[in-house]
Simulated assay, not measured.
Amino acid sequence: MSFSPPPQPSDPWIRRFRPRPEADVRLVCFPHAGGSASYFHPLAQSPTLLPDTEVLAVQYPGRQDRRRERLLDSVPETADRIAEALAPFGDRPLAFFGHSMGAVLAFEVAQRLREGAIGEPRALFVSGRRAPSLHRRGTVHLLDDADLVGELRRAGGTDPRFLDDEELLAEIIPVVRNDYRAVELYRWTPTSPLSCPLTALVGDRDPQAPLDDVEAWRQHTEGPFDLKVFSGGHFYLNTHQRGVADVISKTLADRAQRPATARGNAR
């Protein structure tokens, strides 16, 4: 059996940690506020992830190799751009995994793709985030720099060494503030539910994502819904990479065994 050469992204939005041209499905990962594509490198290397799964990660503007680019402070605009960037990868089924702000973006991109040639993702995994239909007023983006750094320390997703380095902080704070502004000002526009399987993952001590709020993701799909609770806080997945990869692999394996539907990659 022969395989076509792996597609190359037409812009800098997509990172490929381990190209797998023979992959059956591509898992697209969406980082949290202030996060970068490299956050998902450990997941891409997980031994419990199915070998026929290729991990792609989204790189938002304003960080790492894109640090000189204009920041985007709108979830809808960012989702539009990501949906465009994924077009070259639509030759294989896609699955989405998003953490925190990334969960909202993954959901919004899935909404955009379902009406086009790519279609819905094979599965949607949303982590550490309440359902988009539940709006909660957020003010983190309005905090002064010192309080914003304190929020980052409490959340636990940023290396403390970065927060103690004044030069790095000068680069981090504008990006984090921008991302919080985007997700805190986001408002869900009611649409019909997706049809793909939706799995919500959360830490049992996550102050940003109470279990009842995470359970509400159920209403956003007509397909199977599952809720997976891990021990830990907002960044529970830092210590549960294998468990998260196992959930992803089992869901995708189960989905691959089901008959294809008429809606593109939602199969």
Rank of each mutant, 00 (worst) to 15 (best):
D91H: 14
F125A: 11
R122F: 08
D144M: 12
T78Q: 14
P121K: 04
G150H: 10
G116R: 13
L124E: 11
A87N: 01
T78P: 01
E84G: 01
G98E: 02
R129C: 12
R137I: 02
T78H: 05
D80T: 09
R112M: 11
T139G: 00
A123Q: 03
R153P: 09
V109Y: 01
G102M: 04
A123Y: 09
G128S: 13
L143P: 04
E151I: 03
D147E: 15
A83N: 05
A83I: 01
L134S: 11
R81K: 15
L124P: 03
E115Y: 07
L113H: 07
L152D: 08
D147Y: 03
A103G: 09
S127N: 10
T78R: 12
E151Q: 14
V126K: 00
E115Q: 14
A110H: 07
L113A: 11
R92Y: 08
R122V: 09
L152H: 11
F89T: 05
R112G: 05
L94I: 14
R114I: 04
F97M: 08
F125T: 03
P88R: 02
P93T: 12
L113Y: 10
A146T: 15
G157D: 05
L105K: 07
F125H: 02
G119A: 06
R81A: 13
E84Y: 00
G150N: 15
E84N: 05
H135S: 10
A106R: 02
S100W: 06
V140R: 14
E77S: 15
I118W: 03
D144N: 15
L94K: 01
S133G: 15
R114G: 04
V126E: 00
T158Y: 08
P121L: 07
E120L: 01
R154L: 15
V109L: 05
P132V: 11
E120Y: 08
V104N: 03
G157C: 11
R136E: 14
T139K: 09
P93Y: 06
L124N: 05
R130M: 10
G90E: 10
L86C: 05
L113M: 15
R122C: 10
R112Y: 05
G98F: 02
T139E: 13
G116C: 13
G157A: 10
P88S: 08
F107H: 14
V109D: 04
Q111Y: 13
R112H: 13
A146L: 13
Q111F: 03
A85N: 04
G157M: 03
E151P: 03
D91L: 12
L134R: 13
L134P: 00
D80M: 03
G102H: 08
H141G: 07
L143I: 09
R154P: 03
D91R: 14
L134T: 07
D147T: 14
V104P: 01
A155L: 15
I118V: 15
G156C: 11
V104G: 00
L148M: 13
R81C: 04
D147N: 14
